[in-house]
Amino acid sequence: MTQTCTHCGFTHNCYCEAIPTIASDLYLTLLTHPNELGRATNTGKLIAKMLAQAEITEWQRKQPCPRCTGESNLYPPVLLFPSENSVSIADWQAQHPGKSHFIVLDATWQEAKKMLNRSTWLQSLPQVHIESAQASQYQLRRNQQGGNLCTFEVCAQLVRELGDEDEANAMLTFFNDYLQRFQAERSGHALHR
């Protein structure tokens, strides 16, 4: 009888040994919508397994996350969210040399917009956006809007724009492999290579 991996939760296609260790000093919080925590298709959980300074925190509408407000960390918090008020990562870094604490909304795009609109504490944070021209490889959910990246792809692009090209490529290579394993796992069989 096949055992389910206690770390990744897969039965036929364990991906634990494929997870790269990413040597990035990126300081990151995935502010996760409560609905996202139980979804098998969540990709934020993968980021927390490969980036040493990444943490998953459940979003609370009225209660700011102390880690995200700057009260409990050394680095200025900045929300990664494309908007009229956001600046590019390059512009942000030019204006704020040194490390920053990046906050990524880990949710569907519709949920992420609601999270921002419903939380004045999130609205008060400076906002940045990534400059990605790549198409998303993520096809695990229906009703996806064209041009949007999933949480994992956003974080990989952030790593790239912060100057870690090789690490970003390693992340995306793993992600392509993970997507194949996920599809095979969902079908109930081992991936044949």
Rank of each mutant, 00 (worst) to 15 (best):
Y15K: 05
Y15L: 06
C16H: 05
C16Q: 02
A18M: 08
I19R: 09
P20I: 11
T21N: 04
T21P: 10
T21E: 02
I22F: 03
A23K: 06
L26E: 07
L26A: 08
Y27S: 05
L28I: 07
T32I: 14
H33L: 14
N35L: 09
E36D: 03
R39Q: 11
G44N: 00
K45A: 02
I47P: 02
M50P: 03
L51P: 00
L51T: 02
Q53F: 11
E55M: 13
I56L: 11
T57I: 15
E58V: 15
W59Y: 07
R61A: 08
Q63I: 15
P64R: 06
R67Q: 10
R67H: 13
T69W: 01
N73F: 10
Y75N: 11
V78G: 01
L79Y: 03
F81H: 04
S83I: 06
S83T: 15
S83Y: 10
N85L: 10
S86M: 04
S86C: 04
S88C: 09
D91Y: 12
A94K: 15
S100T: 13
F102C: 03
L105N: 00
W109F: 03
E111F: 12
E111K: 13
K113V: 01
K114Q: 11
K114S: 08
K114E: 08
L116Q: 00
N117C: 13
R118P: 01
S119W: 11
T120A: 05
T120K: 09
T120F: 13
L122N: 07
Q123E: 08
Q123V: 15
S124D: 05
H129S: 09
E131C: 06
